[in-house]
């Protein structure tokens, strides 16, 4: 029987097995820029022990890693660097937006901050929080594992004009709007 049987039985089972193996051997690239890095350290260290989820091995080379943890604010000067790191990663790859600055820009609604890294690279898991607590991070990591098991990957970018592609709770009410509303 060939692998491409009409029912696809073997290929699904093999993919399942592969995905199962993948989700417990996450090689992560921590793109640590800011405050969230402190909570990332706490999560990675023995107190919260991210190794229980098979993600305890940070690889500091994008070519050897399959999950990009974007930890901390990305500003417009940094954005091209992030993009090039993402482009250097091999498929299959996933991106975790760690902290609210990476999700939407957070309360840094200003000239220098990127309003969500999903305007630059596709994001799979959003972990909001400023910074998220380690428990919150572990929850996000488990959600990522589910996604890997299902073989899903995000491919779309957020278009600020179309208002799609970002979870509804992260489509935000900006400070500019807030000041306008108050002054009108």
């Amino acid at each position: 029987m060939s692998l491409n049987s009409p029912t696809g039985f073997f290929s699904t089972k093999i993919t399942d097995a592969l995905n199962w193996a993948r989700k417990f051997s996450i090689f992560q690239y921590p793109f640590v820029t800011a405050c969230c890095g402190m909570e990332y350290m706490s999560t990675a260290a023995s107190h919260y022990d991210v190794d229980r989820f098979g993600a305890g091995f940070p690889r500091f080379s994008p070519r050897q890693s399959d999950v990009l943890f974007v930890v901390g604010t990305i500003n417009h000067k940094m954005a091209p660097v992030l993009k090039s790191v993402y482009d250097q990663m091999c498929e299959p790859k996933w991106v975790v937006a760690f902290g609210v600055c990476t999700c939407t820009g957070g309360f840094y609604d200003n000239y220098s901050t990127v309003q969500g890294i999903d305007t630059i690279i596709p994001v799979d898991i959003y972990i909001p929080g400023c910074p998220p607590r380690p428990e919150n991070v572990l929850d996000g990591l488990m959600k990522l594992q589910d996604k890997i098991q299902k073989g899903e990957q995000s491919r779309t970018l957020y278009d600020p004009n179309a208002k799609t592609g970002r979870p509804a709770e992260l489509q935000k009410y900006t400070i500019t709007q807030h000041i306008k509303n108050i002054e009108s």
């Binding site: 500003n75 660097v81 200003n110 220098s112």
Partner: peptide
């Protein structure tokens, strides 16, 4: 300047 978040302006 890779983490300039405009603290003073905000």
């Amino acid at each position: 300047g890779y983490l300039h978040r405009a603290f003073e302006k905000m």
